[in-house]
Design a binder for these strands. Structure first.
Ligand code: SF4
Ligand code: SF4
Lengths: 148, 148
DNA sequence: ATAAATAAGATTTTTTTTATCCTATATTGG
DNA sequence: CCAATATAGGATAAAAAAAATCTTATTTAT
């Protein structure tokens, strides 16, 4: 029940690009160095982010990555799912046919609820917020009170 | 971002024991057959459930497993964490020292929030509810409105 | 005693994750 | 145009985690 390292790296990468300004090209090595990401691995991750339309890859000397979408329009969920694919918590949520009980299983329903809630929480915060660091404090707007 | 098969099996096992009644000994093979769990694998899982104090293992002929705790006192979270250990969503939540940014990182805070929320959701439902199947419908008592 | 059942440790197999290697390609600047 | 610089992209390797099974030992009912 963990996000993968690749996902964590992707979040850091987007965050760094966001801080440097949307549209600004930042070298892969620079990102890797500052965000402590294995350089080549970042390359692979960038490919997926590009495929998801979040960044553009600029080749050649002075190449690097450029954020295509405004930070406030990228949610943490977008970043996570761009790398790991849609979040399901259990196989039966992804493919109900994988378990013959799924239609009537009350546990199944719980997973579904937990999943929706998790996705909502991650979907509520965007990278503009994350840059500011404000998301640490107070309740998220639009969400009913929950923890902290 | 998935629960493991072992965890899913553990949940099924407890559910089956709960349906058969607390204190009742049910053979491992019977559980495995009805709940479609690889028999020997269930043995391993049972060891962990026993270590967590949820079940008792009864050896010998007519042996099997016996639920030690009332279904209403076992939350889904208890079952999950008995097998997978405490839920953290990211390494930095488990060991803040693993990332030097953790003290000031706003993403870190988000993971913390998501984690708390997830654990709360799983902690709110118990196996008595799951047996009834009621947990599928309506909001969970005690929780502010969320999804569905 | 014997048969029936699980325990427990070791081991194997499979899958996923993480990372790197290598050749190709694009871009900049002289 | 050429050389230097950087990333792309496919293949592969290494490591870790998950899933399952094998083997021998132990326990208990009859
Ligand atoms: S038993 Fe329920 S929760 Fe488990 S896999 Fe089947 S449908 Fe999903
Ligand atoms: S950057 Fe933030 S979220 Fe990522 S590991 Fe470090 S503290 Fe955690």
């Amino acid at each position: 029940m963990r996000i993968t390292r690749a996902t964590e790296y992707a979040v850091r990468c987007i965050l760094f690009l966001a801080v440097n300004g949307k549209g600004e090209v930042v070298g892969r090595k620079e990102i890797a160095k500052y965000m402590e990401i294995p350089g080549q691995f970042l390359g692979k991750i960038a490919q997926q982010l590009a495929k998801a339309g979040l960044i553009e890859i600029v080749q050649g000397a002075k190449g690097g990555y450029r954020l295509l979408v405004s930070p406030e329009k990228i949610s943490l969920l977008n970043a996570v799912e761009a790398i790991s694919g849609e979040i399901f918590l259990n196989d039966c949520i992804m493919r109900p046919a994988s378990c013959r009980r799924s239609a009537t299983c009350s546990v199944h329903c719980l997973w579904e609820r937990a999943r929706t809630q998790l996705r909502n929480t991650l979907g509520e915060v965007n990278f503009a917020k994350l840059m500011e660091g404000e998301s640490c404090f107070g309740p998220l707007e639009g969400s009913s009170r929950q923890g902290r």
